Amino acid sequence: MFSGKPIEYQDSPLINDGFWPDLNLADFQKARSIPADVDAGTVGDALLASAAEVNGQLTSVQEKHRAAGHQTTDDVPGVRLDGVSQLTAQYKKAVYARAKADLMGEFASVGRRESHPGQESDETRKGLLAEAALVIRQIKGLKRATVKVI
């Protein structure tokens, strides 16, 4: 139930590798409507694991941009909004979608189904993972789908 009190999120930084942007637990919770009653440590672990997975998938992208003289995602030319590059925004979208998918089991715990209906569904989880995969493909310069001959 709404208590009238402002939601207090965990303002904790996730320090990234220098090329990919640093993230913040509170920003993730707000951007992806993560319930404040989900344990901050659990949310942090999901965000950390997701960032590590996405970083691993984008190693070649990072190497390509660094070889071109771009030391951070915000140095890479492209569309910008309020000083944030499209690469930074895409990276956050992929990490946040994957982290929320990892947290789906938390929404299914006792007492949360009524306050957060539908957030525990397998369809929602699959949609979030598909969103992350699509954004990672875009970052890599790939089309939405490719066909390979086996």
Rank of each mutant, 00 (worst) to 15 (best):
D45Q: 15
A36Y: 01
V76N: 03
T73M: 15
Q71N: 09
Q29T: 08
Y96N: 12
S60G: 09
R112N: 07
S115T: 14
T59D: 12
V38Y: 04
S33G: 13
A36T: 08
L81E: 14
Q62W: 08
D22G: 10
A49L: 14
D74N: 15
K100F: 04
A26Q: 12
A36P: 02
M104G: 07
A97R: 07
D39T: 03
Q71W: 02
E120K: 01
A101F: 05
P117F: 09
G44F: 15
A97Y: 05
E106I: 03
A94K: 00
F19T: 00
K30M: 14
V43H: 05
Q71H: 07
R98E: 12
V76T: 06
S121N: 03
Q71I: 11
L23S: 01
S33A: 14
L81G: 10
W20T: 08
L47Q: 04
D82R: 08
Q29H: 04
I34H: 00
K100Q: 12
S115A: 14
L23H: 00
E114C: 03
D45V: 14
F19I: 07
A89V: 06
Y96P: 12
S60N: 12
D82T: 01
Y91M: 07
T59V: 13
L58W: 05
A31M: 09
D39I: 05
L58V: 07
